[in-house]
């Protein structure tokens, strides 16, 4: 199933979702007050330390998860260095990477079901009616179920196109793709009605 969850279980997996989310929230607030590049760099090293506590494999995974933003980070650093000052650039980039890494750590070490459970309880505490909570849970399940179905359909459309054309499909596949999803919504709503009285 779709998930960002880290396979090797780590020390952080055993920490409950609530405290981890709260800590992330507080850290995000505090990070705005980091005074200079050195402090921000220390914050980043500290987050890496949190990864390291759970072992090398986990640290490696955490670093890999940062790869997609490295290019943008380098650009921002260069831009700052050119337009303003390198120190300011280093502060911004280190702070951003530290926060992303910390947030990734929470996501990697918390099971989807636990997060959902946490959300469910938060909504109950906020007095959201049970019917609406049920609708949210149902919607979440539907997305998890149908995203892979739609991905397969997109690939089938591309294959059907390539079987008859040497040119690239481009945006013209969008129409059948969207139509397919809307038609799926009709059959799903039928399946829901076949098994629910009120929703």
């Amino acid at each position: 199933m779709l998930s960002l969850n880290s396979e090797p279980r780590s020390f952080w997996h055993d920490v409950p979702a609530g405290p981890k989310l709260l800590a992330l929230l507080i850290a995000t607030g505090l990070a705005m007050w980091l005074p200079n590049a050195a402090a921000a760099a220390m914050a980043f090293v500290a987050v890496m330390g949190l990864y390291a506590v759970a072992g090398w494999a986990f640290l490696r995974q955490g670093l890999l998860a940062l790869r997609p933003v490295l290019f943008v980070a380098a650009l921002i650093l260069a831009w700052h260095g050119w337009a303003l000052s390198w120190g300011q650039g280093a502060l911004v980039v280190a702070r951003m990477l530290a926060l992303i890494a910390l947030a990734n750590l929470v996501s990697m070490s918390t099971a989807l079901a636990d997060l959902l459970d946490r959300v469910e309880r938060a909504l109950a505490w906020l007095r959201v009616p049970p019917l609406w909570r049920q609708r949210l849970a149902l919607s979440v399940a539907l997305v998890v179920r149908f995203t892979p179905v739609l991905i397969v359909k997109g690939q089938q459309l591309q294959r059907a196109w390539r079987a008859r054309s040497r040119r690239r499909p481009g945006w013209r596949l969008m129409l059948p793709f969207v139509l397919g999803a809307l038609d799926d919504a009709e059959t799903v709503s039928e399946a829901l009605r076949a098994r629910t009285g009120t929703l």
Binding site: S139, L142, F146, I151, G154, L182, A185, V188, L192, L199
Partner: peptide, 26 residues
Amino acid sequence: MARHIAQIALFAALIAALGLVPKFDL
């Protein structure tokens, strides 16, 4: 209501799929 939930969920899945189907270039 079932229909609205299905439409909302399927469209969320569609937005996801649009970013994940390899080479769905515009």
